[in-house]
Simulated assay, not measured.
Amino acid sequence: MNIMDLLPAGEPVLFVSPHLDDAVLSCGALMAAVADRCPTVVATVFTAAGSPPHTYAARRFLRDGGGGSAQTLYQTRRHEDTEVLSQLDAEPLHLGFPDALFRRRRFPAGAALVLPELAHRYPTYRYDIARGRVARGDRPMIADIVTAMSAAAARARVIFCPLGVGRHVDHLITREVGTRFPERVVYYSDFPYDQTSAPDRGFVARHRLTSWKWDVGIAEKARLIRGYRSQADGLFPGGVIPAAPEVYWSAGR
């Protein structure tokens, strides 16, 4: 596929990112390639945290991110995202929905103070967030996300959304947003999770998706990824960012 045929010069492009790094992790090389020809917006969905008490999984995430408060970490992450996207001439759009680690359900306040896991929709990472089951209480959020990014989506010639490789619930919710734009959506393979996990073959088959790769500028993408300083070490503990081609999935193109 010739991506430049898909993205004519001057046509706006929208990348929808679950978290404050996912679009660049998965699409940074392609974004760099089209930066000088297409006005680009990166709409990041889950850009906020919640107040304590936090679950063990959330506390561990905060420690890995520098040990500060949740509000401080997410302020730092939003700043990092703005800095990195400025290098790509991309406009950041932070939608302000809370990360899965911090989303709560209705539960008596006293019990939640004793065991915060009781009050959260996803009490653990491994058995809840990464299991691939979107909580019933989160399902109405999909329409709210579509509304929040409606102006950017209306202008975009192509809308890039995650394929949900790795089955993180926030990625699956964002993938579902893409299904609302069947004529314009291109799904991207979620890096680095696609290095150890396979695509959802059922989703690929239902939407009749075929894959194609982009490998121009992959080495340079590592510099952009390292701009997410609060996250890079946790994602790549050995400091080596694999130079893997970006993978995209689309239908009828």
Rank of each mutant, 00 (worst) to 15 (best):
R104W: 09
L6C: 05
M141I: 14
V185A: 13
L14S: 03
A151V: 14
I218T: 06
N2R: 07
I218M: 02
L172F: 09
G234E: 03
D128H: 14
A57L: 02
D138F: 04
E83K: 10
R208V: 07
V177E: 04
F46D: 08
V134Q: 06
R37H: 11
R106T: 12
L20M: 15
C38D: 02
P237F: 06
C161I: 08
R167M: 06
V84W: 01
E183H: 12
T174F: 06
D190A: 02
P140C: 05
A232Y: 08
P108W: 01
D64N: 12
V158I: 15
V216I: 13
R180G: 09
L73A: 05
A244T: 14
R106G: 13
S189P: 02
L95T: 08
T72Y: 05
R157F: 01
H168C: 10
R201K: 10
F191H: 11
A100F: 10
R104S: 05
V41P: 09
F107D: 00
A198L: 14
E80F: 06
G239Q: 02
L172M: 11
R184C: 08
Y248R: 04
T124I: 02
T147W: 03
R37W: 05
V247Y: 00
G50A: 12
Q87R: 15
I3Y: 13
P8V: 03
